[in-house]
Design a protein around this nucleic acid. Structure first.
Lengths: 339, 339
DNA sequence: TAAGATTAGTTAAACGTTTAACCGAGGGAA
DNA sequence: TTCCCTCGGTTAAACGTTTAACTAATCTTA
């Protein structure tokens, strides 16, 4: 079997308590014994048993990560990157991430993830929009709960968010600085806070520039912000509004849909129409032209969430922090100055 | 704190051993006591402590899942679906899946995943191609190791594979049955067993039909089977070979690249050229026309791997099983009969 | 009826840690 | 010299399960 703390103690000629103190580098240990013990640990290739440790310390060493299945399976690796950021950050620490998906139409009678029921996690990170009913059920367990890229309107949880408003402003300003005035906004369900905030940023930037937002240029009726809906929304707008010269799509997926529509309709990008996206879902999309967009640091979002969780766990401070992660304008070839 | 087995025992008026026996439904318990105990468990909302259980049973209740980061972040949700299949299957059982990615250029001096080092898993599932050096390092730990969609040539591990040869035959037969004779094969690195096997199937089907495989119709020099390389390979073949009427791409990503090239070059699909892919990565790709392909049951692959792992863990039978998962022809609009 | 077998449940040890309480040695102050 | 403090380490209890070994009661069987 694997070596235990006992073997180490024996080999180093000390008690098991001493070994334990060395491992958790307690100060009450001389550097001599410390070295001896560390040598023994190395020689035996000893690793503490997690279950024994967890049992006595009443921790599990796991963090749950909840995602809806459609978010997990999205074509563009957005939430998967957020997850990866969490996993990267956990990797060097002492936590493991337990990922589970839930159905996006989770309802009252669906069971909670097993890791909640059998208390296999010390806290839960929720990424993306999930049904309110699940939030309610989760809140009943007094587990630390942290949200990423979404949060409940009703309750006040610690959360890591994209600075969407600033991103919306930056994107719109970029188009304005290129001389565009008639800028369309193509978004999905306005009830999703991220999309709404990007729209707010869009409007703010227009107002700052003295441009009156035109309702006919704004599409927010699509249920889900994917390519197909980007295509459809573009169709609706461009078939009636002839003087639009630029599009701000609420994410890259919709932007790609818009590009498809424009190509199909004989428009040239960026000569006829400039287009900017949001998210920067890096992938071999073979887009032509490459899409100007607002980069969201997805890995960073996930890492930030885990750090927040670890802090919450460590200091039990439950004052609900909000962390706004900044975004960045990435200029490629899909936008063009018309001055 | 959470209720323990002690609380349940007290409430039910039995010993803790009895409670334990009920939980693991041992036969030596009358149905009367069983009911009493189960009621107490329900009343107290009791769940056994995993760490205590693991400590005594010397299990961890976790299965590691290793994936290279580029596989995890692929545009098409292929390996993520395999993972999900594993997670689905684990969900109702008693295992948790610990997912970790490794760099695709993992080298000798990179550390092993932490869950291996500190023995936090009972077994490891490896999905997709990983560097041989990692396999060697993993093999040193005597942990059950199961491969999915890849396996080491050197050693004999239990493995769950796609029936690629049959898939290659089915795909090619489909084209042959539509009257095609000059069928191109567009693949990536031939060292990847899956791709090689699909090519073998292609050749077999041609031979069965009395058609001599033409080397000029076969491209296997791309390093990675993605869209861009599909595009490039198509360019190479179609710029010299004028009588090709159909393409069998080794996966959907390359097929999409091929479609892009054909469109850019003014070909009509399927009127001028028929094309079939492999994998069936369902997604909102807005492909026009929809791609005929060979469906790989990805969820099923993952689930099968977990079942194999659980069996290995349960019966310690280490005879390296090989499971071939069948595939299915999905006819859409990208192939057309030319008879 | 007595001995053995079966049934249903209990006792207690064990798993591998952490950590509060304890202890002995040496040094300094009164 | 005596008392107290500090330093560096040890002892032992506790965490919540599983399970081998045991026991008491009932049932069979000759």
């Amino acid at each position: 079997m694997n070596p235990t703390i006992k073997d180490v103690a024996q080999k180093a000629g000390v008690s098991i308590a001493t070994v334990s103190l060395v491992i958790n580098n307690h100060k009450r240990i001389s550097s001599d014994t410390k070295k001896k013990v560390q040598k023994a640990i190395k020689d035996l290739n000893y690793y503490p048993s997690r279950s024994a440790r967890d049992l006595v310390s009443k921790k599990t060493g796991n963090i749950g990560f909840i995602l809806t299945d459609d978010h997990f399976l999205r074509t563009e690796p957005f939430y998967t990157r957020i997850f990866l950021g969490t996993e990267f950050e956990a990797r060097d620490g002492e936590y493991y991430i337990l990922l589970t998906t839930i159905k996006s139409d989770y309802s009252e009678k669906d069971p909670l993830p097993r890791f909640i029921l059998d208390r296999s996690v010390d806290g839960v990170i929720v990424a993306g929009k999930i049904p309110e009913v699940l939030i309610d059920k989760l809140a009943k367990y007094n587990l630390p709960l942290i949200f990423v890229d979404y949060t409940s309107a009703k309750e006040n949880f610690p959360v890591v968010l994209i600075d969407n408003i600033q991103g919306g402003i930056t994107a719109t300003n970029h188009l304005i600085s290129y001389g565009h005035k008639n800028i369309a906004f193509i978004g999905g369900d306005i009830n999703h806070p991220s999309i709404n905030e990007r729209l707010i940023g869009y409007k703010k930037a227009l107002e700052n520039a003295g441009i009156n937002p035109n309702k006919k240029f704004i599409s927010t009726t699509s249920p889900y912000p994917d390519r197909q809906n980007g295509y459809n929304s573009a169709k609706k707008i461009f078939s009636t509004q002839k003087d639009v010269t630029a599009v701000f799509a609420c994410n890259d997926a919709m932007a790609i849909g818009v590009m498809h529509y424009l190509k199909d309709s004989g428009f040239s990008i960026p000569n006829d129409i400039s287009i900017i996206g949001f998210d920067d879902v890096e992938s071999d999309l073979m887009l032509d032209p490459p899409l100007t967009t607002i980069r969201v640091p997805k890995i960073e979002l996930g890492a930030e969430a885990l750090r927040l969780m670890i802090n919450t766990l460590k200091y039990k401070n439950s004052n609900a922090k909000k962390i706004l992660v900044p975004v960045e304008l990435i200029i490629r070839k899909s936008t063009k100055s018309i001055k």
